[in-house]
Amino acid sequence: MMDAMGIFDMVLALALPWLGWRLLASPDLFRAMVLFISLGLLMALTWVRLQAPDVALAEAAIGAGLTGALFLSALRRLERLSEAERRLAFAGKREEEDEIPPERHRRAKPVAYGLALLLLAVFVLLLAWSLAQTPAGGGLGPAVGEQLGQSGVRSEVTAVLLNFRGYDTLLEVMVLFLAALGVWSLTRVRLPLQDEEPGPVLATLVRLLAPLMIMVAGYLVWIGGSRAGGAFQGGAVLAAAGVLLLLANVTVVRQIPAALLRWGLALGPLLFLLTAVVCVAAGGNLLEYPPQRAGAWILLIESASAVSIGVTLAALYAGGRPPEPPAQDRGGEQGPGRDADADAGGRQ
């Protein structure tokens, strides 16, 4: 029996891979990225259908929104590069402007390609068959339900994330910190991110939206204790506000001192880590919150993490460490418009 919801499920399940295929097959990268964002939104819809509202929120904000923004800004940077190159009249030399020369695409031999494709297909079919064969095991749902009362929060997902498997989340916050560190180690940011001045409409809109988004982020963190929401969702909204401010090239953003930014990145990981250690010092195990106060501790960790997640994601969007203070920038060869990454060197 196939009711309306069943048909909806089927259409959704078919639409996802179809969109994925179109996305990768599209010759135009910009189009591919737009399709990627719509795929992310469709995924969020799927999570709602699968009764995973927390994941849906995170997917819409981080998976579709922020990742999409990252892709688009990378594409713009690459396009700007290839434009500069075209201007240098190097045209006849390179056929495909999109391609990075050292990694020239080798045409696979049709036989090997066919064989690999066959292998892939066989494995996927095997996987599908075994998924269909195997009855689902127990899962930890009942165990979580039993212990939920002692976790200090009412939302099951938050209880797993911040309490039962809080150690995972501690390390995950570190991954995010590490990503920011990695990006900062690679290059310096070029502000403003946009070449053209933002219009007055955008500037006004951003001034209005940013405080609102910060409030929404706070609400999401607060509500995470009992319903869908939490540090990651709140942090993502905060990051979106940061991205808007960066795009609008608001003066305040450019004047944030680098030290403050560093503290912003480090606050969440540091506080989380200190909480874990305090638990040990108080005689418990690592990350074993005192049972009556667990809710408050979790809220504290979540708030600090949300701030850091927001700053980190926005920093990832900016795509580099903050520019050095102008005092050190003597020697006029590094003007603001010039390539600020001269230190990375093309020395072989």
């Binding site: 994941v55 998976g63 979580v144 498997r165 995950e172 991954v175 990832l316 795509g319």
Partner: peptide, 28 residues
């Protein structure tokens, strides 16, 4: 509903955006 995979996927989404960000900067 088993919330553990939900938590794992949330972790996974964050990990994935982290690696993507580093990869994109490297590409540029």
């Amino acid at each position: 509903i088993d919330p553990v995979p939900h938590a794992m996927v949330l972790t996974g989404i964050v990990v994935s955006v982290s690696t993507t960000a580093v990869a994109l900067v490297l590409v540029c």
